[in-house]
């Protein structure tokens, strides 16, 4: 597959745009088609262009309101969505859950309805429970964008990772992409797997046995527990953060052992292809899953991923704007 094949025909693009509008929400990549994903990536390219202009803002979402509703801490994803919405000229409100009535016992649905009554067109949501954005999308009129739900999906991260690979490699077909780390707790890994397998990449997941669910073999990925074996001839290595806050249950003996077996450092990098791309969704634990030298080295696309994240989120908001104001059946009395 060449770069040319990554471009949709006009007809495919129109069909994909319509099915995204019909979906109305961006909940996960599992349910999206290859064409829908490619349309988002194609649109991202146009939005990224404006970052080099003197005025880095377009009027596309003027008059629309985006509410960031984050039930879990997040700085980069929230900031990225905020910047994306602002560059599209939308009004953005950050609903800080820790200071809100949620701490006084308000339900998720009541919180969302309150926000909606204030006129939100989009709700960008992060929640510790898998499926929470889906639950909300069934009950409110605003378009819901999933900014990470439990261990389920983080679709805009999957899209920005795919975009970064497309921009750097120009193709997906035949690329060997290794995802390394805590797969079982990772929504980033799941969204990456959905996007990349649909786009034709060969995905390998690697990490300690306790962090690699064997059921993932059904998703068409290769499973490995041996880093050196897994990264041989890799085109892309996507490192996941070891989530210290989720490591209470002793799933691996120690950070030191993880580092010894799974850290990507300069020496191990030599096993991969010479033009290997190193990605990481951030925030990185320097010296744990990635060495200092690799994080700052020439193979690293980590900062580029952050830039691409803003453009991808602009594309997602833009493609969903056609669905705002579209009425949807809202079941009564469900809470």
């Amino acid at each position: 597959m060449s770069e040319q094949d990554l471009m949709l025909t006009d007809e495919e693009a129109r069909d994909a745009a319509q099915s995204i509008v019909r979906r109305k929400h961006l909940l996960g990549l599992e349910e999206m088609s290859r064409e829908e994903i490619l349309l988002i990536l194609q649109t991202t390219r146009s939005f990224k262009q404006i970052f080099t202009r003197s005025v880095k803002k377009v009027p596309t979402l003027r008059g629309k309101t985006v509410v960031n509703l984050f039930f879990e801490n997040s700085t980069r994803t929230r900031t990225s969505f905020e910047l994306a919405a602002k560059r599209l000229s939308a009004d953005v409100v950050n609903f800080a859950v820790s200071t809100s009535s949620v701490t006084k016992g308000e339900t998720l649905l009541d919180t969302a309805r309150t926000i909606e009554a204030m006129g939100a067109d989009f709700i960008v949501m992060r929640h510790r429970a898998s499926g929470a954005p889906w639950y909300l999308s069934q009950r409110i009129r605003a378009s819901v964008l999933n900014a990470g739900d439990g261990t389920h999906e983080h679709p805009t991260q999957g899209l920005l990772d795919a975009y970064t690979i497309m921009e750097k490699k120009g193709r997906f077909e035949g690329l060997k992409v290794v995802i390394c780390g805590d797969i079982v707790h990772s929504r980033v890994a799941r969204s990456n797997i959905w996007a990349l397998t649909k786009l034709g990449a060969k995905v390998t997941i690697v990490g300690p046995r306790t962090l690699i669910p064997r059921s993932f073999a059904e998703y068409g990925v290769t499973i490995s527990y041996d880093l050196k074996e897994a990264i041989r001839d890799a085109d892309v290595i996507n490192l996941l953060r070891i989530q210290m806050e989720r490591q209470q249950r002793n799933l691996f003996p120690s950070i030191r052992e993880y580092r010894l077996l799974y850290q990507i450092n300069e020496q191990r990098l030599n096993l991969a292809r010479p033009d290997v791309l190193i990605m990481h969704p951030g925030p990185i634990n320097r010296g744990v899953e990635i060495s200092q030298g690799v994080a700052d080295g020439p193979a690293s696309a980590i900062n580029e991923q952050v830039t691409n994240g803003v453009a991808v989120r602009m594309a997602a908001l833009y493609l969903l704007v056609g669905a705002t104001g579209v009425e949807q059946e809202v079941p009564e009395g469900e809470a």
Binding site: R14, A17, Q18, Q42, T43, V321, G322
Partner: peptide, 11 residues
């Protein structure tokens, strides 16, 4: 944009 039935594809 929100009134178009045929959504324009950005280039």
């Amino acid at each position: 944009l929100h009134r178009l039935d045929q959504y324009p594809v950005m280039q």
